[in-house]
Amino acid sequence: MEVHEPKWKKLAKYSENSINSSINNIDDGCLMHIFSFLNPIPDRYNTALVCNRWRFLACHPRLWLRVDRSIKDHSEPGVYPSIEAAVSAARPGDTILISAGGIHRASNIQIKKPLCLIGSGELPDDTTLICSRGSDSALEFLSTCKLANLTVRAELGCCLLHRSGRLTIDGCILQCESNPLDHLSHAIVTTASSSVVSSVLKNCGDCVSVSRTRIEGGAKAVLTSGTLSLQRVRVMCTRASLIFWFNVEHR
């Protein structure tokens, strides 16, 4: 038993019985600030499932980062002129919303933290990331990430390079431009392997899962140089394109 109990402790004990507060009494700004301290994956996503209000706040654009090339005023918080800048500023689990219209350059952008990159257009065609000649890939993933509603176009090399983590690609378009060397380009290249290092660092397996994604051009939709293998492939043929669903994972 403490000899001298601080005054606030007595006050707190006294208040415990008289205060019956509810988190829904506190205003949106406070609640959003609380959510901003949560890791987006999985905790902030968890809060989104609690109720409608929490979902709205947890997914509020203020908690997102935006990439907008046309931005003039760089002082606006959370808006970045390039994908690189947004990726380096993002905290693990953040969602980066990439503005529709125009073309975003993406060359060898390494992503080492869990992020979600989403195109803000209505269709994946509205937001295009171009990897120019001379780069290995547009985006390189070393962590669990999600891409959605984006077009990634590679002039040479690959659109997405997967090194480790769980990569989810949903509703995207991956294009490899046709050129004399297009036998060298692939939409997705994965080098992940179940080496000792990666299994110690991560207890969940590396994998790539692709859904509703149009893949055009290139030698192969996916090239695996690690130990992962292609599984559960579904393809829908439309007149103009092929839409893929597949997983690349450990056997």
């Binding site: 509810s22 988190i23 829904n24 406070c30 600030h33 609380i34 959510f35 901003s36 301290f37 949560l38 890791n39 905790d43 968890n46 809060t47 499932l49 609690v50 109720c51 409608n52 209000r53 929490w54």
Partner: peptide, 26 residues
């Protein structure tokens, strides 16, 4: 805010609802 966030952290959705007395309105 940080303390409240740490209370939400690592809890399941049901635990969070119970703890803060939030009704599931989905």
């Amino acid at each position: 805010c940080r303390t409240l966030a740490s209370l939400i952290k690592d809890r399941t959705i049901i635990e969070v609802r119970k703890m803060f007395n939030v009704e599931n309105d989905f």
